[in-house]
């Protein structure tokens, strides 16, 4: 039997970026670029221009929640986290897991009936919801290929490029 992990990886469509947490230097300087490619499969990885994005949005908490302990942009989060201290890591992957829908993960989340955070997006979702939604809002590039190039596996998956349908019926409906 193929392992769950392999299936999960196969299903991952778009390159996920794992913000390299330790890349903050001793001086606390943010990285200029972050290579995001750990789970690329249907799309290639990218070199995320962190420096440029810092120039666009100076408030780190817009992307990084409250991890710096410098206040929370989201009012809903601020209800509990207005005084939260900075965390030791700013990596998205420390909270947003690669496989959010495994039984193990679900059981962990559901084990504590009082837990508030029962709805944490997966890593892939976290990135796209954060990046793409903002790109759409800001009229920034928002086609898939604007950020990451599709791989050959991706072309086959989407039946595009050289894998485009060769004919057949006009699609999509029958009574």
């Amino acid at each position: 039997m193929k392992s769950r992990k392999i299936w999960a990886l196969k299903g991952i469509i778009v390159a996920l970026f794992l913000l390299a947490a330790p890349s903050f230097g001793a001086a606390g300087e943010p990285p200029a670029t972050v290579r995001i490619d750990s789970l690329s499969h249907l799309y290639d990885g990218i070199d995320f221009d962190h420096e440029m994005h810092v120039g666009v949005e100076e408030d780190c908490s817009v992307c990084h929640h409250h991890v710096f302990g410098d206040g929370v942009a989201n009012k809903q989060c601020a209800r509990c986290h207005s005084d939260s201290k900075g965390t030791s890591s700013v990596a998205c992957r420390d909270c947003h897991v690669e496989e959010p829908f495994t039984l193990e993960h679900m059981m962990k989340i559901e084990a504590d009936p009082n837990r508030y955070h029962i709805d944490i997006t997966g890593l892939k979702g976290a990135y796209h919801l954060r990046c793409l939604n903002c790109h759409i809002e800001m009229d920034a590039p928002s086609e898939c290929a604007d950020c990451h190039e599709r791989t050959d596996i991706g072309d086959r998956f989407y039946r595009s490029g050289k894998y485009a349908p060769t004919g057949g019926e006009s699609g999509g409906h029958h009574e």
Binding site: C144, F157, Y158, R159, S160, Y163, A164, P165, T166, G168, E169, S170, G171, G172
Partner: peptide, 9 residues
């Protein structure tokens, strides 16, 4: 079966 057009169409 193969779709009529690619899924990115």
């Amino acid at each position: 079966p193969e779709p009529a057009v690619p899924f990115d169409n």
